[in-house]
Design a protein around this nucleic acid. Structure first.
Lengths: 247, 247
DNA sequence: ATGCAGATTATGTTCGAACATCCTCTCGAT
DNA sequence: ATCGAGAGGATGTTCGAACATAATCTGCAT
């Protein structure tokens, strides 16, 4: 919050392990690896041009992040998706995010308000991807969307709550991006989402906690429904296409 | 929940990395490493008799668990303790645990009830340590205490919520054990805690969500207060004894 | 043809050494 | 005396090879 320290941080206190962790994490959330897929070292080593040691480090952390699974002597696999996990995820995210929003509204200062407006502006200005193939545009939109939702709850004053909200948000994004294979968003849906974003922001800044949390919850419910609808469609087409259930 | 799969799992699908992760985690929570202390590889390697590779793996996971911190090229350190973190931790834990308890009460079956009673019994039968030096007894008591609290919320039906409650519980235990250097527990306090445990269990099984969550919240508030009182005492004596603030 | 034992290959795990970075201590100049 | 440059040691990082385990294939017996 407030101003960033001006240090451009050109000194890289970074290591290969850190870098590959960030890259893998992004790619996992973006869905560039299929759920359940084995993450072989040689394969990853070639794809990301890093040795095995940094890879193990990154994958270990991703296990604790619940993005990959690990079984001794049998290697790492991409964490699977499931409808029950999706439902659990979303219910808790709504709960925690609304909680955090309420606290933010109670405690947020002017910088918090300003950041919301800035993030909202950047989100509204983000170009919409024409297809899911257009990775760069999708990535950019997702980042701005994330940042907007983060800005809403940033002033809640609880690092732990922010951390959990972040984790849930990341996992939800994984479902969203894994499942929405067509830009199935009708013009009406897009408009409603945009309005919800704007309304939440306005209500938050107006310190109307009731309205803000209500609309935010609605917004989540709407997103989840779309994702679930797509999820069912995708898994139906999968089980129809071949007997492979992703194992 | 229900019955464990009978497989004794004598086949060790375990690796050195997994083992050392579990051991380090336990020791970190038990406070065998001082907050802020550097975790040097050679040192750990000697102490735990493992190579550096498994160590890096374990430490990486512990970073995502927030139990250790990492700075590139400067190594790993034990995550620091702070009053603000403690307060944050506890507030959220109360919130989430009560939430989970409410859901458990709404959904729990007879196995859930039975498990609570079993865990309560084991907790009440656990011998109290005469001093904090008596590690084995402390460990045993903490484990049973953990298990009791887990049993209360086990039927909430949300793996994510359970996961978060577990993380917060582990971190709180770290504070508790780091800070309570004397068995300062008066007989009255002990009795009250025992009664709270019993009351929560009874109310939960009687499906009295209001009463159960109220008492659970009280129980947490009480524990936190004791820990905070001890924390302030410990940090005061530290800053009085020498200028070292743990850095 | 089927099923099982042994051999072969693929893969994950661990170690030790080479390398890079950071920290500390020394020494000399101001 | 203070500060900064540079040398030396300590520590973290990465790689490649050796080792262990799991998965696959082969061929023989039924």
């Amino acid at each position: 919050m407030s101003l960033q320290p001006v240090a451009t941080n050109d000194d890289d206190a970074t290591t290969l392990g850190i870098e590959i962790y960030a890259r893998l994490r992004r790619d996992l959330i973006a869905g560039h690896h299929k759920p359940g897929e084995r993450l072989r070292f040689r394969q990853l080593s070639a794809a990301y041009s890093v040795g095995i040691a940094p890879l193990r480090e990154a994958l270990s952390r991703l296990v604790s992040d619940q993005l990959v699974r690990f079984e001794g002597h049998r290697g790492y696999t991409v964490a699977p998706l499931s409808l029950s996990d999706l439902n659990d995820l979303c219910a808790l995210r709504t709960d925690l995010s609304c909680n955090a929003l309420r606290r933010s509204i109670a405690q947020g200062d002017e910088d918090w308000e300003a950041e919301i407006l800035a993030a909202l502006h950047r989100l509204e200005r983000a170009p919409l991807p024409h297809s899911v193939e257009d990775r760069k545009t999708v990535d950019e939109w997702e980042q701005r969307h994330d940042r907007f939702h983060y800005s809403l709850i940033a002033a809640c004053g609880s690092p732990w709550l922010l951390h959990f909200c972040g984790a849930l948000s990341d996992h939800f994004q994984r479902y969203r991006r894994a499942v929405i294979v067509v830009t199935s968003s009708s013009e009406a849906l897009l408009k409603r989402v945009r309005e919800q974003h704007r309304t939440v922001a306005e209500a938050a800044i107006a310190r109307d906690a009731e309205r803000a949390t209500t609309v935010l919850a609605e917004h989540f419910r709407g997103s989840v429904e779309v994702v679930i609808r797509n999820y069912e469609e995708v898994s139906r087409s999968l089980s129809a296409g071949n007997g492979d259930d992703g194992r």
